[in-house]
C-alpha cells in the first residue's frame, strides 16, 4: 500500500524509521563494539562509544581459553547435519503431498504441525532417558536427530508451500513429453524447486543454530554447541564484558548474515504459509 508522498513527509519517515531501527539494533551494535575494547574500556564510566583503542585481543583470548572453534564446529555439525537430514527426509514427503494430494494430505500436514507444538519440557525426561540408554547423551549425532525432528514439520511445510506453487500442468507436460519419474524429478522438478529448497535450508539452519533447550540440556563437554558455550558465560565470567562480547559476536555473526538473506522466506516458513 506504499504510495507517493511529499519529500518532506518522506524525510520525516526516514528519520523516524532510522532512529527506531538503530535503537532496536543498538544492543547488537554495542556488543560488536565492546568486543573490540579492552576490559577497562568496556566498563568505563561514562561509557565510550567509538573513541577507544580498538583491539582484537579478546577474540584471541576467547579462542585460547575456551577453544571457541570446537563449539563452533559442533554448531556447524549439529545445525548442518540436522538440516541436511531433515531436507532429505522432507523433500519426498512434501513432493508427494503437493503433487499427489489425497483426501488425507491436509490432515497429515496439520498433524505434522501439531507435533511442532509439543512443549519440549513435557518430554524432556523421556528423551533424556532414551539418550542415556542409547549412549547419545552429549553426542552430536543425538542432537542432529533431535533438532531434525523438531524442525522437520517446518521443513515439510515450507517445501510443501513452495512445491504447491509449481503448476501441476508442468509436470504433466513433462510426462507427456516422455519423461519418466526419474527424468521428471531430475530435469523439471528439481531445477524449479531449488530456490525454495535453498530458503528452506537456510531457515532450518538458523533455527537449529539458535535452538537453546535441547542443546543446553542434552550436552556437556563434548557436543556442546555455541548456545551452551555462551551460557557458560552466565557468571562470573559474564562480567568480563569485552570477552563476553567477543564470544557473542562470534556466535551470532554467521547467522546474522545468513538471516539477512532469508528474511523474505522467514515469514512463509514461520507462519506455515498462512501469511503471504
Amino acid at each position: 500500500m506504499a504510495r507517493a508522498v511529499t519529500p518532506k513527509q518522506k524525510a520525516i519517515n526516514t528519520g523516524l524509521a532510522w532512529t527506531i531501527g538503530l535503537l532496536i539494533f543498538f544492543p547488537i551494535l554495542w556488543t560488536i563494539l565492546t568486543s573490540f575494547k579492552t576490559e577497562a574500556e568496556a566498563i568505563a564510566s561514562p561509557p565510550v562509544f567509538l573513541n577507544f583503542s580498538w583491539t582484537l585481543e579478546n577474540y584471541a583470548i576467547v579462542q585460547e581459553r575456551s577453544d571457541y572453534l570446537r563449539f563452533l564446529w559442533n554448531s556447524v555439525i549439529i545445525a548442518g547435519g540436522s538440516t541436511i537430514l531433515g531436507v532429505i527426509i522432507a523433500v519426498p514427503a512434501a513432493w508427494s503431498m503437493a503433487f499427489v494430494p489425497s483426501r488425507r494430505t491436509k490432515d497429515i500436514l496439520l498433524w505434522m504441525l501439531s507435533t511442532k507444538m509439543l512443549p519440549a519440557v513435557g518430554v524432556l525426561y523421556p528423551i533424556y532417558l532414551i539418550f542415556i540408554q542409547l549412549g547419545l547423551l552429549d553426542s552430536r549425532i543425538g542432537l542432529v536427530v533431535i533438532l531434525m525432528l523438531i524442525n522437520l514439520p517446518i521443513i515439510v511445510w515450507m517445501l510443501y508451500t513452495y512445491f504447491r506453487e509449481i503448476p501441476g500442468e508442468i509436470l504433466e507436460a513433462a510426462r507427456m513429453d516422455g519423461a519418466g519419474l526419474r527424468e521428471e524429478i531430475l530435469y523439471v522438478l528439481t531445477p524449479m524447486a531449488v530456490p525454495g529448497i535453498a530458503s528452506t535450508v537456510l531457515l532450518s539452519f538458523i533455527l537449529a543454530w539458535n535452538e537453546a533447550f535441547w542443546t543446553l540440556n542434552l550436552t556437556a563437554a563434548n557436543a556442546a554447541p555455541l548456545t551452551a558455550f555462551i551460557a557458560s558465560y552466565s557468571s562470573p565470567e559474564g562480567l568480563f564484558y569485552a570477552k563476553l562480547s567477543a564470544a557473542s559476536t562470534m556466535a551470532i555473526a554467521p547467522i546474522l548474515i545468513l538471516g539477512w538473506f532469508s528474511q523474505k522466506q522467514l515469514v512463509r516458513g514461520l507462519t506455515f504459509g498462512a501469511v503471504k
Partner: peptide, 27 residues
C-alpha cells in the same frame, strides 16, 4: 511508508530475531 534506505532499516529491525537466545539474554 516511502523512505530512503528502506531495505537497510528492515535489516536493522529484523536482526534481533537471529541472535541466539543465550546471547541476547546474557548481553
Amino acid at each position: 511508508q516511502p523512505m530512503w534506505g528502506q531495505g537497510a532499516v528492515r535489516v536493522l529491525v529484523i536482526a534481533p530475531f537471529f541472535v541466539m537466545p543465550t546471547v541476547s539474554a546474557l548481553v
